[in-house]
Design a protein around this nucleic acid. Structure first.
Length: 375
RNA sequence: GUCCCUAUCGUCUAGAGGCCUAGGACAAUACCCUUUCACGGUAUGAACCGGGGUUCGAAUCCCCGUGGGGACGCCA
């Protein structure tokens, strides 16, 4: 490029360039290289200072416009007069980003450049360099940015910067992919689609041109949906992993997959799922207020009655349900008056999935053991 | 400051000049279901940023304004 005259050496020092930009800003101008080392016909260049390793600058055309038909934003035109001569190689000879990508795209025969909005301004420079190299110009598609929940730029404060954060927060990969894909792209009214459907449907024609705002509530909804339809074994493994991270072993409890099946359609994420099944693996301690409220003389009497029935009961959900209903009838109370104290005793909390299903999954030994400890 | 991009319910979006009395989803509200808490089901409210054009006809095309975003490095 030096030989062809499409690039030239620039001996400006960083301090000199800083001063140049400061002055320009002070005058309300767009900061840019002023071309003092750019060779022109009939122009006298300064004498190269001794001992300075020059940077190489691209000699950007001064006249005309650069234009391309962006696959997302349509035609974009930028006057060459707006572009300055960018450095393509540093004083130490290493190439800069805008030069690297151009050379790499050319060598690899890249046909489509799909990237963030923030690169729109680099595109005309890259097209000019490509032209100087005699290379074919690829197609460009510039995707708009994603803003945080509060409508401002995404940052560390929003917590959505690293994909690993989603894992930590209990999101399923399919939910994250589905949500992110739908944010800024659409396929009619489709809201829920598998990765295979995404691959089949995805196209550049239905990408939104404007910036989208991240909506955690909708992600949560999608995640809950994927959780309901997820494989029990996969969820079981997540329970083992997440409980294990808290130092809780699942070895002495019911199979994690069964616990997952019981709770997966009532939680929003994997951490909540782990919390929901926690009491299956660790003997719970109900809060004193809960005990005072629910473990009255009457309810404890009913539980004693139930304990007797359960001891002789087939351990199936149907039989367990029948036993509970018999206790309810015998005590002359309503279902919640037995079910809730039972939950407090077995799980340490007043809410749970259907109590008969909980008994079934918890298992006879653990149920009777916890009842005996409370009675 | 200069240049570039952008603008439909609170949010994500459908919408390619008449199919729009603007559709779907999240969220909200109400009701239903119910063995608690959830899940789920049904229904309701909610938008074309403003102003000018073009056209028989504009959410859709053009211009201006305003709002939002991005870029102005020997960073990537």
């Amino acid at each position: 490029m030096l030989a062809a005259g499409t690039a030239y050496r620039c001996y400006c020092s960083p301090e000199e360039l800083d001063r140049m930009r400061e002055d320009q800003r002070a005058r309300g101008e767009k900061p840019r290289y002023d071309g003092r080392w750019r060779p022109e016909p009939g122009k006298d260049l300064p004498e190269p200072p001794a001992g300075v390793a020059p940077a190489i600058r691209f000699r950007n055309p001064r006249e005309g416009v650069v234009a391309w038909d962006d696959l997302v934003k349509g035609r974009i035109e930028i006057a060459n007069g707006e572009l300055d001569d960018l450095v393509i190689a540093r004083g130490d000879g290493t190439p800069t980003y805008n030069f690297c990508v151009v050379v790499d795209d050319r060598d690899m025969g890249i046909t489509h450049v799909i990237r963030g909005d923030d690169h729109v301004n680099n595109t005309p420079r890259q097209i000019n360099i490509l032209a100087a190299l005699g290379a074919r110009v690829p197609l460009y598609a510039h995707l708009s940015m994603i803003l945080g929940d509060d409508g401002t730029k995404l940052s560390k404060r929003h917590g959505a910067v690293s994909v690993m954060q989603y894992d930590e927060d209990g999101y399923l990969p399919d939910a994250v992919i589905n949500y992110l894909a739908r944010l800024g792209w659409s396929h009619g009214d489709e809201e829920i689609f598998s990765r295979a459907q995404l691959v089949e449907w995805f196209d550049l024609d239905h990408i939104t041109a404007s910036a989208a705002q991240f909506n955690t509530e909708k992600l949560n909804w999608l995640n809950a949906h994927y959780l309901k339809h997820a494989d029990d074994e996969v969820l079981g493994a997540e329970i083992v992993r997440r409980l294990g991270a808290q130092g809780v072993s699942t070895a002495d409890g019911p199979p994690p997959a069964r616990a997952a099946a019981l709770c997966k359609d009532r939680v929003g994420n994997l951490n909540e799922l782990a919390d929901a099944v926690h009491a299956f693996y660790v003997v719970p301690h109900a809060a004193p207020e809960l005990k005072a409220q629910h473990l009255t003389d009457g309810s404890l009497a009913a539980l004693r009655d139930l304990r007797g029935r359960l001891a002789a009961c087939d351990w199936t959900r149907e039989a367990l349900n029948k036993a509970i209903k018999e206790t309810v009838a015998a005590a002359g109370v309503k279902m919640p008056q037995v079910a809730i104290p039972l939950r407090v005793v077995l799980l340490g909390q007043p809410q749970s999935p259907s109590i008969d299903a909980v008994l079934e999954v918890l298992g006879r030994d653990r149920v009777l053991g916890r009842l005996d400890a409370a009675l």
